[in-house]
């Protein structure tokens, strides 16, 4: 079996706010090219923190971050990381800060030094790909929740990243939008890491599911999703097994 190269690797990462407990404690985490990893863990276990540390938004107390074959320490090191790794924030209102959709989707490409024409081109292509044709001049704060999530995804994809970190992408979406999101994610040729609490979402998107405990990722306790059939009372009523 050919092992794909490691794109992002966090080694012995510790992170905590001054005076508080460590949120990440000796955490090890590696992403190989093409991985699709789901992270399931209770609220407050440090999943979002993990993403922000990987992007260089939070500086770890100790440990090393290696991305695309280089150790990343300083703010300047992360400029390249942020170009190649996209982060989808939990709250779309944090991600969409421009007045109109086109402005927002083109924001990343423009920052990467593309000309206006190229940026608009990439933005329009990305919007088309996500089925958001005609959204260019919509005002971002007037979009619905589902539209906001998809436009946020467009803003990240427009940067043409190699890895995508998604912080609860399916939370708060209706069934149709969730279906659409799953289709989109499965059609992407990227390495993906999802934070999610929804097993039905993860079962359709992730290959591996990890959990977090005491500020660490548990590899040995990898969860396996499976379906099974059995009979019981009231079985005709819609219900869930967790």
């Amino acid at each position: 079996m050919i092992v794909s190269p490691v794109v992002l690797s966090l080694k012995k990462i510790c992170f905590g706010y001054p005076g508080g407990q460590l949120i990440l404690n000796d955490l090890d985490f590696h992403i190989h090219a093409g991985d699709r990893i789901g992270l399931v863990a209770p609220n407050g276990s440090g999943k979002t923190t993990l993403f922000h540390v990987a992007m260089g938004l939070l500086k770890p107390v100790s440990g090393t971050i290696e991305a695309f074959g280089k150790v990343r320490k300083k703010e300047a090191d992360f400029v390249e990381v942020r170009r190649r790794i996209g982060l989808l924030f939990q709250d779309a209102d944090d991600q969409l800060f421009s007045p109109t959709v086109l402005d927002d989707v083109a924001f990343g490409p423009l920052n990467l030094g593309k000309t206006r024409e190229e940026a608009v081109n990439v933005a329009e292509k990305t919007l088309d790909f996500l089925g958001l044709t005609g959204f260019e001049d919509r005002v971002t704060h007037k979009l619905s929740g589902g539209e906001k999530r998809l436009v946020s995804l467009a803003t990240v994809l427009a940067m043409e990243p190699e890895v995508l970190l998604l912080d609860e992408p399916s939370t708060g979406l209706d069934a149709a939008t969730k279906e659409k999101l799953i289709d989109i994610l499965n059609s992407l040729d990227l390495s993906l890491v999802f934070i999610s609490h929804e097993f039905d979402f993860l079962s359709q998107t992730a290959q591996h599911i990890y959990t977090m405990e005491n500020g660490r990722i548990l590899f040995d306790k990898e969860l396996h999703l499976h379906t099974h059939q059995h009979a019981h009372l009231m079985g005709q009523q819609p219900h869930k097994h967790i």
């Binding site: 992007m55 938004l57 400029v79 924030f89 800060f97 920052n111 608009v120 990240v156």
Partner: peptide, 22 residues
């Protein structure tokens, strides 16, 4: 708090203080 998160989101997309108008 939101300002901090939005700033993070802007940095993640390569913001360096330059404003581009389309």
């Amino acid at each position: 708090e939101r300002a901090r998160r939005v700033h993070g989101a802007m940095i993640c997309r390569g913001f360096s203080g330059k404003f581009f108008s389309l």
